[in-house]
Amino acid sequence: MRKMSSVQHVSSGSEGDQQYVMVDDKKKRRMISNRESARRSRMRKQKHMDDLINQVTQLQKENNEIGQSVNVGTQHYLEVSSENNILRARVMELTERLQSLNSVLHIMEEVSGFAMDIPEIPDPLLKPWQLPCSSQPIMASAYMFQY
């Protein structure tokens, strides 16, 4: 369509100039419109890129916070596990001492002939919640329940 209008020849000089001016005006308006459209497209792309960069930054921040939380939880777990191992060893040691004392009481009972009330020692591995000395409370620190 454009070639037809620009190729037309008109005999009068002033009418021909007007047509060329109209075609040039249309071209200029189309160029301006295209430039504006391209500018808007670049702005949209830049805004999208900025949004993605902000999202990456936010996700990296959250990832670091989660990593720190995992490290704190792992450290807390290791501390509690170590404390449990110490307590298990202590329970075994005390159980052995109690068995030793009970054997002494059995010997005293046999030698003296007097009946003694010797408590039965529960196996802490088979019944971990049944403690040999149930009258003593178990103390727990508040920091154990933070996580």
Rank of each mutant, 00 (worst) to 15 (best):
P122H: 01
E110D: 14
Q99W: 11
I32A: 08
S6C: 02
N63I: 03
H76S: 10
L98E: 04
E83F: 12
V72P: 00
P119T: 00
E93T: 10
T74P: 01
E79D: 12
M4F: 15
K27E: 14
N64K: 11
H48S: 14
D123V: 03
D17Q: 07
N34V: 01
D17Y: 04
Q60H: 03
K26M: 15
S5M: 06
L87T: 14
G16E: 06
K45N: 10
L94P: 01
T74G: 05
N34W: 02
A38S: 08
E96A: 15
S14Q: 06
G13C: 08
I53W: 02
V10G: 00
F114Q: 09
I53T: 13
P122T: 03
D17W: 03
S14P: 00
M144F: 10
G67F: 00
A142L: 13
E15H: 05
R88W: 05
K3R: 10
E62Y: 00
H76T: 05
V70S: 05
L78A: 13
Y77Q: 07
Y143I: 09
E79I: 08
M139Q: 09
A140H: 13
Q75M: 13
K45S: 12
V91N: 01
T95M: 05
E110Q: 13
I86P: 00
M139H: 07
V23N: 05
S14Y: 04
M31E: 15
K61F: 00
W129V: 09
R35I: 11
S100V: 01
H106D: 08
Q55D: 14
Y147L: 11
Q19L: 12
D117Q: 12
Y20D: 11
S33L: 02
Q58K: 12
E79K: 11
M116H: 06
Y147Q: 13
V72C: 02
R30T: 13
I118F: 00
S11V: 07
E109I: 01
D25H: 06
Q130H: 07
Q18I: 02
K26W: 15
Y20N: 12
Q130W: 04
V72F: 04
M49L: 10
D51M: 10
P132W: 08
M144L: 14
S12H: 06
V91A: 03
D123W: 02
L59G: 03
G16P: 01
V104E: 09
R88M: 09
H48G: 03
M1H: 06
M43S: 11
S135Q: 12
L131R: 08
N54R: 14
R44H: 14
D117P: 02
V104R: 08
S5H: 04
S41P: 01
N54Y: 08
Q75A: 15
G113E: 01
L87F: 14
